[in-house]
Simulated assay, not measured.
Amino acid sequence: MTTPPFGPAEESRPDALTDGAPVGGTAAGGDAADVTLDRLLDEIRNLQSSFDAKIRYDEVREHSVRSMSDELTAYRENQAQLQLRPLLIDLITLHDDLAKIGGSADCTADTAKVLGHFRDAVEQILARNGVEPFTVENDALDRARQRVISVLPSGDPSANRRIAERLRPGFQWHDRVLRSEWVSVYRYATPSPPIEPTVPPTPPAVPEADEGALR
């Protein structure tokens, strides 16, 4: 029997060379894959941290910009109020004077009508600048929006610090009081006890002189 030139047939099989053992280099390839996966996870974590930091930075910057914008708007409004306030106060005073003269007893009907037109024109000028008249709805005194011009005594305790009469409307500009409403209020006064009339004492009678003693 002739022997094959390459040795026995079973020696030429690939599985005979490995004899059930893993192929060389497989373990090293698995370690490299694990290293690559860990590196990829680290990069994802770094990207996530960078993204979170960027989001926080944008939020802080947006808050700062909004705060600066609000402060600038408030500053501009305050500057405008400081510049316009004297003029607006003068217009309100003129409005009060026109109303006072027009309502006086010696003012004729024609003059009162003309003054009323001027007063309406002043109100329109104030309205174009954002100034509106107001009256406090409640009849209790509001120190923040009302000014007491006169006080009327009252014997009713429930009427104390209540509005007796509204003298002039108030004026406000952007919810800020330019001129308080002028009012007259009641003040409780304890009634004094009635004074009883006093009768002057009767002077003692002068005794009549003895005529014999006078002789």
Rank of each mutant, 00 (worst) to 15 (best):
E71N: 06
D96R: 00
A109W: 05
G29D: 12
E11I: 06
L72E: 06
L141N: 02
P157T: 04
I101E: 09
E77D: 14
H117W: 08
E123L: 09
G130W: 04
D97P: 00
V199G: 05
R145H: 11
L214D: 07
L84T: 03
L37V: 03
E181F: 02
V35R: 15
E62H: 14
A99W: 08
T93F: 12
S150M: 01
G102H: 04
V60A: 15
S50Q: 14
D31E: 11
R85G: 10
A74K: 14
G102A: 08
A105Q: 15
R13C: 07
D142R: 03
V199L: 14
A109T: 06
S50I: 03
T18Q: 13
G103A: 01
T2R: 15
W173K: 01
D106H: 05
R143P: 07
I163N: 04
T111K: 15
E137M: 10
I149K: 09
A32G: 08
V136M: 12
Q79V: 14
Q172R: 11
G130Y: 04
D139L: 05
A27M: 05
S69H: 03
G7E: 05
D42N: 01
D70G: 04
D139P: 07
Q81E: 12
R179V: 07
F6M: 05
S49P: 00
V136R: 08
F51R: 09
D70N: 12
R56G: 08
A16D: 10
A112F: 06
T93N: 15
P207M: 04
D142H: 05
R187P: 01
F134E: 01
E196H: 07
D15Q: 08
D142M: 03
S69Y: 02
R176V: 02
A27T: 01
I55C: 10
R179D: 00
G155I: 00
A27F: 07
H63T: 08
T18I: 13
T111R: 15
R66Q: 12
I101T: 13
W173N: 01
I44D: 06
L152A: 08
E208Y: 09
L47D: 11
K113H: 13
E181P: 00
K100T: 05
G155M: 01
D70P: 01
L84R: 04
I92A: 06
A144H: 12
I125S: 14
Y57D: 10
R13S: 07
D15F: 11
A159W: 02
R162H: 13
L88A: 13
Y57W: 05
A213G: 11
R162P: 02
P169T: 06
D120E: 14
D34R: 14
V148P: 02
N46C: 08
Q83R: 13
P8S: 15
L115Q: 03
D52G: 12
T135I: 03
T26V: 14
D175N: 04
Y186W: 09
D31T: 06
S67E: 12
S64E: 09
L214G: 05
